[in-house]
Design a protein around this nucleic acid. Structure first.
Length: 210
DNA sequence: GACCAGGTCCTTG
DNA sequence: CAAGGACATGGT
């Protein structure tokens, strides 16, 4: 089954790449992308954009400032993203991690697996957020597994755990950051468009393999 | 008013 | 390990 699973996955990836081409996804500095990765947890992206603007306009748009910032101040600026107390705490924890590791530059020269471990040790950063940061802030060839991806894979008949999905996508995708970034963007875009409310309106995923 | 959003943590069984 | 609750605002 594993062989046909990777075939199914590459079919999905091809179909979506053809459908969407190049999608604008995460822009900004590495710091801003990391902030966004925390703030977007269980939250619409539009609200996250506003909060990041708020932070930037007050000079809190980077880790150094967040490290020194008062927690209450951060809470006020990110309120519109919901879960603002835990998220402020998570931003502080991430900023402390960055500080401890010697800054973005130092992190940039670490291996992907080491960097992943460090990120996963931060309270409030799970696998999805860690991989988002690796993929979009540090341009590592990592594919982000999220709920949308899981849904789409299920539609295609690929029913496995996250760890296995991660392995499969890693096997199918090339080691190119840009390709991994776009692949995840495509998944999210397609799922938001077609997998509304548990239905699959006009979804072609199931029929891709005949 | 109900339901969901580009998750994670903690507690229970 | 799986399941359920907590965290919270804003849009449809």
């Amino acid at each position: 089954m594993s062989g046909s699973d990777s075939f199914r996955i590459s079919t999905i990836l091809e179909y979506l790449a053809e459908r969407y081409g190049s999608l604008p996804w995460w822009r900004g500095t590495a710091d801003e992308i990391m902030i966004g990765a925390i703030l977007t947890q269980q939250t619409r992206w539009e609200n996250v954009g506003r909060a990041i603007s708020e932070l930037k306009s007050r000079g809190f748009g980077h880790m150094e400032a967040l490290y020194r910032a008062d927690q209450g101040v951060i809470e006020d600026l990110i309120r519109c993203t919901g879960f603002y107390r835990v998220k402020a705490k998570r931003l502080k924890a991430l900023a402390e991690c960055v500080q401890r590791l010697g800054g973005i530059g130092a992190m940039d020269s670490m291996s992907t697996s080491r960097l992943r471990e460090e990120l996963l040790h931060v309270k409030g950063i799970g696998e999805e957020t860690a991989d988002s940061i690796l993929c979009y802030a540090f341009s590592r060839p990592v594919f982000v597994i999220d709920d949308y991806t899981r849904k789409i894979c299920t539609c295609a008949g690929v029913m496995t755990k996250n760890s296995e999905l991660r392995r499969l996508f890693g096997e199918v995708l090339p080691e190119e950051p840009g390709v991994c970034q776009q692949a995840h963007a495509h998944m999210v875009e397609y799922a938001k468009e077609r997998c509304v409310k548990g239905l699959c309106e006009g979804c072609r995923i199931r029929s891709l393999n005949g």
